[in-house]
Design a protein around this nucleic acid. Structure first.
Length: 575
RNA sequence: UGUCUCGUGGUGUAAUGGUAGCACAGAUGGUUUUGGUCCAUCUAGUCCGGGUUCGAAUCCUGGCGAGACAACCA
């Protein structure tokens, strides 16, 4: 089957995966009245990255596929690290990717009262207790995966005392670290998470939503599963590391639901392997470090694997969704080659980006037999992949720029470009012949002299002649000067954070950004009809790659970011 | 020396007891006014051993290997 169009979100055909099969089974058993409700539950403590995009596409894709819905919930149980800045960026990124969450975004902090009540219920059942020990003491009693833990001396306090203490924790009578609430489960469990995990800790911090109402905050483990339950989530899709938490979530729900009527839906957690991409890092901590220590310009630096970085780099939402679909979903550890991501954006942009002429590394060409002062407006197709995008005109004159790399003295036969005595075609203009060159003292070419054949204007009969090379060009007099930022991979190592003895920063690529201040572009590139749903202008610079206009552009200074170069089988061959 | 999870071309991912397929990457050729696109062809795989079966990537068993888990993080 040929790929005529890259799928739009509505007709996206999801690749099947094991999660579909599990949900299909649940549906066959008529669990949850046949409903499917998923959720995307980020913590607002950083910007979303391509790994989150996988999760977003999975969760929202599932909701759509099963005619259900997907909630956006912020798991904001740790005011120390969280911020509204992140809430806003996450909403923007999910929307940009093309997904809609059900109703308003949810916040785990909306459930703090309920969680508190449930904690009290557990205390009353003798399933939770206040522990006065320090973090270190508790840790030292946890045991190891192979040795059982030891009981806290406070484990068997009376219900009354626990109730009193917990309320006083809530009232702010104790300082941070003085007391915690713990679940009373099993210190000998082979699952470390069942060894009397913490439920609440004292944090006298301002919360971005609840303000100063609380000075105790639930731990993620005591909040996440209940958040899903409260919302009626049927399938809680998460990454592999939470597999060992699943029994704990189920235990909490069992405790909470005891004595209650059977709920309409009870979340079922299914885990999948997170995305890893080579030549980058994906941990929030490391991304934050890159930002804070100014190795990049910000979360949306086009070299970052963040969604905002990809957006600024020029990736389209469709290309990211396609990528998420291509990589699939499974439980085994995986490392995806960035070339697949690049393939996805090329595939989309090839279909949709208008072609324009720009010269990044110019050398001057004088067409000696072309009349001085004459200008011809040449017609050019905006996108050979999409006739409906029409044509525009661009000016041709006696003095033009071509790429320095498109000329070579004494070039080998396989070099299909310009050399003295050779003919090449100037795309959408004339066939020209190189007659000679001029150099400066250092030997660098300063001018190339050509003659043109007036009978070979594109469209004329005479232009049908076979010529080995076709070059792009711009008229010097008419061209506009813009800045171009070229990006290369941020790290030189395939797995920058995969070395025990070396820090990932050691592998930073010093050439990951190169700025070209004088890039020459045809004057009417805006007429080429760049039209993208997110309003970002994207173009193909003929023969060079895909570029988009950076948000920092001004009228005086237009900045283009290179999204990705065109595939280049010539440069590969040279090696 | 625990519990859980996972091993299919270089990288991902299908095949759910019945011809190991697809994508990316790589190679070759064709078309081309982008060395792009497109088209065609090729390279390359079931971790190992035993068992069940007419038949095993799939089921059983024993190894081996990888990952996760011992934060008042999520």
């Amino acid at each position: 089957m040929s790929k005529e169009h890259i799928e739009t979100p509505t007709d996206e055909t999801l690749k099947s995966n094991f999660i579909h099969q599990e949900i299909d089974k649940d549906l066959q058993e008529n669990k949850n009245q046949g409903k499917v409700l998923t959720r995307f539950p980020p913590e607002p403590n950083g910007y979303l990255h391509i790994g989150h995009a996988k999760s977003i596409c999975l969760n929202f894709g599932l909701g759509k596929h099963y005619n259900g819905a997907t909630n956006l919930r912020f798991d904001d149980t740790n005011p120390v690290k969280e911020d509204v800045e992140y809430v806003d960026s996450i909403k923007e990124d999910v929307k940009w990717l093309g997904f809609e969450w059900q109703g308003e975004p949810r916040f785990t902090s909306d459930y703090f009262d309920q969680l508190y009540a449930w904690a009290v219920k557990l205390i009353k059942k003798g399933k939770a207790y206040v522990d006065d020990q320090s973090a270190e003491q508790i840790a030292s009693q946890k045991g190891t995966p192979t040795e059982p833990g030891k009981e806290s001396p406070f484990r068997n306090r009376s219900v009354e005392e626990n109730l009193d203490l917990f309320e006083r924790m809530k009232n702010g009578e104790f300082e941070e670290g003085e007391k915690v609430l713990r679940a009373k489960i099993d210190l000998a469990s082979p699952n470390m998470h069942m060894r009397d995990p913490l439920m609440y800790r004292i944090l006298k911090r301002h919360h971005h939503r609840t303000g100063d109402k609380w000075c105790i905050y639930p731990m993620y483990d005591f909040a996440h599963g209940q958040g899903d339950f409260v919302e009626g989530i049927t399938h809680s899709i998460c990454t592999l590391e939470f597999e060992v938490h699943r029994p704990l979530y189920n235990w909490f729900l069992d405790q909470i639901l005891e004595g209650e009527p059977a709920p309409e839906a009870r979340p079922r957690q299914i885990e999948f392997a997170r995305l890893n991409l080579n030549y980058t890092v994906m941990s929030k901590r490391k991304l934050l470090q890159l930002v804070n220590e100014n190795y990049v310009s910000g979360w949306d630096d086009p070299r970052m694997p963040t969604i905002s970085g990809l957006r600024r780099r020029g990736y389209t939402p469709a290309s990211v969704r396609r990528f998420a679909d291509e990589i699939g979903v499974a439980k085994r550890e995986n490392v995806i080659d960035v070339s697949l991501l690049e393939h996805c954006v090329r595939e989309d942009l090839n279909k949709r980006a208008p072609r324009v002429y720009a010269v990044m590394n110019p050398v001057k060409v004088i067409i000696t037999n072309y009349p001085e002062g004459q200008v011809e407006w040449m017609e050019a197709i905006n996108n050979p992949e999409d006739e409906s995008m029409g044509t525009r005109t661009l000016p041709f004159s006696r003095e033009i720029y071509i790429e320095r790399e498109d000329f070579m003295e004494n070039a080998p036969k396989k070099f299909f470009r310009m050399d003295v005595g050779r003919e090449v075609r100037l795309k959408n203009a004339y066939i020209v012949k190189c007659e000679g060159i001029e150099k400066d003292e250092s030997g660098e070419i300063t001018e190339i002299h050509c003659t043109y054949d007036p009978n070979t204007k594109s469209g004329m009969e005479g232009s049908n002649r076979k010529v080995k090379g076709t070059l792009h060009w711009v008229s010097i007099e008419h061209s506009k000067t813009v800045q171009v930022k070229q990006y290369d991979r941020l790290f030189m190592d395939e797995a920058p954070d995969g070395h025990k003895d070396k820090e990932f920063l050691e592998f930073l690529n010093p050439d990951s950004l190169s700025v070209i201040d004088n890039c020459y572009i045809e004057p009417n590139y805006k007429d080429a009809g760049a039209n993208f749903e997110d309003g970002i202008e994207r173009y193909q610079f003929q023969r060079l790659g895909y570029f988009c206009i950076d948000k920092d552009s001004t009228e005086k200074q237009v900045i283009f970011n290179r999204t990705v170069a065109l595939r280049d089988s010539w440069s590969k061959k040279k090696k």
